[in-house]
């Protein structure tokens, strides 16, 4: 893969190392539900179709590979950076998304923490702009880092005039 023409550097900061655990847990929960549902059908229903065994094995293998590969891959991709006039994020794994928003166009900055994130003391920063394209998100930040970043962004955003459309 040639990167010679891709002169855009990655954002400076990594997310928390615990984010790997977060993504692994999410993948494991998802695949346990998928495989488990098929398992229950196989055990409970008489004369369940035989191909269900095959799909269950396939789902289990895909699930294990996904839970092992995806979080580590994501950890290498997910990065973020804030400068004096812009927020810059990178996310994804197989497909990657780079987002850039000027500070002057930011409308709100919030943090959100799901149950898993609370367990791991992590936090997601959501930076919304006036667009219907959806907000910029930095997932799996250490909760204290997230709180600090939000304070900084809120301060810079307020100091910038304009209605952000």
């Amino acid at each position: 893969m040639s990167e010679s023409e891709w002169r855009l550097r990655a954002p400076a900061n990594l997310v928390s190392k615990r984010a790997v655990l977060l993504w692994t847990l999410r993948a494991v929960i998802f695949w346990v539900v998928v495989v488990g549902a098929q398992g229950v059908v196989l055990l409970v229903v008489d004369g369940a179709p035989t191909w269900l065994r095959a799909t269950m094995v396939v789902a289990a293998v895909v699930g294990v590979v996904h839970a092992l590969v995806m979080p580590r891959w994501r950890y290498r991709v997910h990065r973020w950076e804030t400068t004096g006039d812009a927020v810059f994020t990178r996310s994804g794994w197989i497909s990657q998304e780079w987002r850039l928003a000027p500070i002057s166009r930011i409308q709100t900055v919030d943090t959100a923490r799901g149950p898993l994130q609370q367990l791991l003391n992590l936090s997601t920063i959501t930076v919304t702009t006036a667009s219907a394209q959806g907000p910029l998100r930095v997932e799996g930040l250490d909760a204290e880092v997230a709180a600090r970043v939000v304070d900084e962004l809120a301060a810079t955003t307020q100091a910038t005039p304009g209605d952000a459309t």
Binding site: L8, S95, Q96, A101, R105
Partner: peptide, 14 residues
């Protein structure tokens, strides 16, 4: 324009 989004799939990167 109030920002950029750059998306690259595996095939696009190649």
């Amino acid at each position: 324009i109030i920002g950029w989004k750059l998306t690259r799939t595996l095939f696009q990167r190649r």
